[in-house]
């Protein structure tokens, strides 16, 4: 112990050492929920591959579909896996990790003991959010990683063919995949902040997770109504697929910049609300 303990606290107690990330990470990683979620994401590409192997060849339509494209190379397969999961599965995963933070502790009644330890409230929220972010990023990396492995094994290490018909060498293609995981990380921050806020205001983990997913789905539905025109730009999911621009040899950063800005705006507002609410909340769970 280098820093002296405060006069009013128990020996060895320092607020900055409470609920360290390693501790919270251990608490979460030992959960079946975490293990199963990450495991399923790692398994998803294999399931996709199985589905492709069993699927009958459809009637000749004269044009190539994205599913045809997915079977061209490992990188294409990984891109397909990202496309299929970005708008729902990954939203659910992020909502799960963040919506569970406070609400599950509340439902186990362990929240009050953590707060009475005392872990300062802002710190508790921050540490739990950081660990949820680490798990989310892990999920966002496991998916393309596993998809690349499965894809390489099943379809070889060929070039990436983008939906716009361009080809990218496998090396840069993997880099683009990483970048798209990075974009999704930033873009899903709005889901994270919303789930965190819901987790703070409700004691039911399912309510927090489901609420965040529901808002995402409503936003996606509204986004399909073209009559809304410019208003759709404000929907948090409007730029959810902007990372597809990364698949061109010349990257158009426009929509991705707008998407990150939109997501961070929502995340900042919702996250600030979560902190504000949690700092003032009477813990009755």
């Amino acid at each position: 112990m280098t820093a002296p303990t405060r006069a009013d606290a128990a020996p060895g107690y320092r607020p900055g050492r409470t609920l360290r990330l390693s501790v919270e990470l251990r608490r979460q990683l030992k959960r079946r929920r975490t293990q199963v979620t990450l495991g399923l994401i790692a398994l998803l590409p294999a399931l996709l591959w199985l589905a492709f192997s069993f699927a009958e060849q459809g009637p000749a339509t004269g044009s190539i579909s994205v599913v045809d494209l997915a079977q061209r190379s490992g990188t294409n397969f990984a891109v397909f896996a990202m496309f299929t999961s970005a708008t729902f599965l990954l939203v659910v995963v992020v909502a799960l990790f963040f919506g569970d933070t406070i609400a599950s502790e509340a439902s186990w009644s362990s929240l009050r003991y953590l707060l009475a330890t005392p872990v300062p409230r802002a710190r508790l929220l921050r540490q739990k959010a950081l660990v949820a972010a680490m798990l989310s990023v892990a999920a966002l990396l496991v998916l393309p990683g596993s998809a690349l492995l499965v894809g390489w094994a099943a379809y070889g290490g060929g070039d990436l063919i983008s939906p716009a018909g361009e080809t990218l060498d496998p090396g840069p293609a993997v880099l683009r995949l990483l970048l798209s995981a990075g974009y999704l990380t930033l873009h899903l921050s709005w889901v994270a902040a919303l789930a965190l806020l819901l987790s703070v205001v409700t004691d039911a983990p399912l309510g927090a997770v489901g609420g965040a997913v529901m808002v995402s789905i409503v936003s996606q539905i509204l986004d399909t109504i073209t009559a809304l025109e410019g208003l759709r730009d404000y929907l948090p999911t409007h730029y959810a697929t902007a990372w597809a621009d990364l698949l061109a040899s010349q990257i158009d950063w426009g929509d991705m910049t707008r998407g990150v800005f939109s997501a961070l705006s929502y995340a900042a507002v919702l996250g600030a609300l979560a902190v504000w609410r949690f700092a003032r909340k009477d813990i009755t769970s």
């Binding site: 405060r6 009013d8 186990w108 929240l111 003991y113 009475a116 005392p118 300062p120």
Partner: peptide, 28 residues
């Protein structure tokens, strides 16, 4: 011990509490 209590007050570290039932992580 002379220190006012507020959420997260460091003096809470000198209190051991068991209030309204146990709160454990069921998976551990």
């Amino acid at each position: 011990f002379g220190h006012p209590i507020s959420p997260g007050a460091p003096v809470l570290s000198r209190i051991g509490s068991f209030v309204e039932g146990p709160g454990f992580l069921p998976h551990l």
